[in-house]
Design a protein around this nucleic acid. Sequence first.
DNA 1: GCCGCTGTGTCATCAATTTGTCAAATGGCT
DNA 2: AGCCATTTGACAAATTGATGACACAGCGGC
Lengths: 236, 236
Amino acid sequence: MSTTILVVEDEPAIQQLLSATLTRAGHDVIRADDGEHAMRLLNEALPDLVLLDWMLPGRSGIDIARRLRTEERTRAIPIIMLTARGDEQDKVSGLEVGADDYVTKPFSPRELIARIKAVLRRRAPHATDDPVELGGLRLDPATHRVTADDQPLGLGPTEFRLLCFLMHNPERVHSRAQLLDRVWGDHVFVEERTVDVHIRRLRSALEASGHDRLIQTVRGAGYRLSVDPGPQRGVG
Amino acid sequence: MSTTILVVEDEPAIQQLLSATLTRAGHDVIRADDGEHAMRLLNEALPDLVLLDWMLPGRSGIDIARRLRTEERTRAIPIIMLTARGDEQDKVSGLEVGADDYVTKPFSPRELIARIKAVLRRRAPHATDDPVELGGLRLDPATHRVTADDQPLGLGPTEFRLLCFLMHNPERVHSRAQLLDRVWGDHVFVEERTVDVHIRRLRSALEASGHDRLIQTVRGAGYRLSVDPGPQRGVG
DNA sequence: GCCGCTGTGTCATCAATTTGTCAAATGGCT
DNA sequence: AGCCATTTGACAAATTGATGACACAGCGGC
């Protein structure tokens, strides 16, 4: 998970703790000691999420949040605020300004991580939940079911994702690199040949119903999902 | 999105917050301070959705919900209730009366918007407080009873809510995170693995009658309630 | 107030699947 | 035939889910 988190916290000890916790959880961390500092950093690069202490010297947390929400460029960035325990007023004002969630001090690292994860997940646009159908093959993301001519198929998680991607982007050749990016995730370190293996696994699952012919190999280029078998070599 | 939302909330600050949040999200807002007020507004024009505080002075939220569900004219209007955090009884009674969803206070605006959107999207299904039945399993929100082939079952509170949610949303695969959100509540902090444990408890309660097979594990995705056992891995 | 219950959330551990890689086999193309 | 790209079968490591045990908080009875 290569998400960058901006931590705005004046107390060095807490800042250190936050930073360590987040780093250990696999996030990149940028730190700011106060509002001014935070604003400067925000001008350089936009983080994926802002973790904001509500009680800051000078410009208070609420100011920063408000400003983030005002400007077009930063409006979409999720904000999690750190508040003192039991300060209801903080929570209300924070949520009013548009914070996405809050964590009360003292916080448990696990809880912090969990909330960050939850917020990031919530903001992820829902991948289309509509069923796709093609050449007798039917895949329903919502129920996580696949049928070939109404016969249920059992696929492993990766095969499912692979087929899901192919069915949403049929009639197009996808290189192995593209498939790795889109199906496996951004920058995972996996051999390109591994794609072959999963294509094979997917094919053998489709074999029983003869739907394996939908997955075509384009020599030197990649794979394609198509009802049309395509021309044979030398044939018009 | 020109949806009109009726907000029923007695506390001015919260009402203000709700109104601001909803307006910013592009909804039209009508406000009522109490049950009577709400009823008067409902006589004038029907909103597309009602956001209802469960704890109201005078006529309680549950009364309003019940009345909305009773009258033909208002029966189809989706209801989202606002409950205090962790009030189990509220959640259960809310489901009984037929609320479509609930949000616990304090709530995050983003979450609220998301739930409203979700409810509006699926507006159609969701029987009210009628008993749900599926594959010989029968759950009656009104009496808080569950039977398997007419044999009464004893379930703990959480297991009941879990089963209730699953039976209202069958076939669909729910990730652990989604289940935590929908069954446990908004701002609770529990491990995702805990869902496994409760699924197991629910299963062992259903085991005696063999209904545990209704609860299916979808590896890498979550859980699903369905009569259709689904295929084994690799089988066509 | 004390005590035993019930319901919950966490863990540690075990079992089952899934997955990334290799290396050898296959097959197309020139 | 010779060169490559792709297909396949086999494997060991890594994930992921199922289970049983446990500690603890809340509750009601005594």
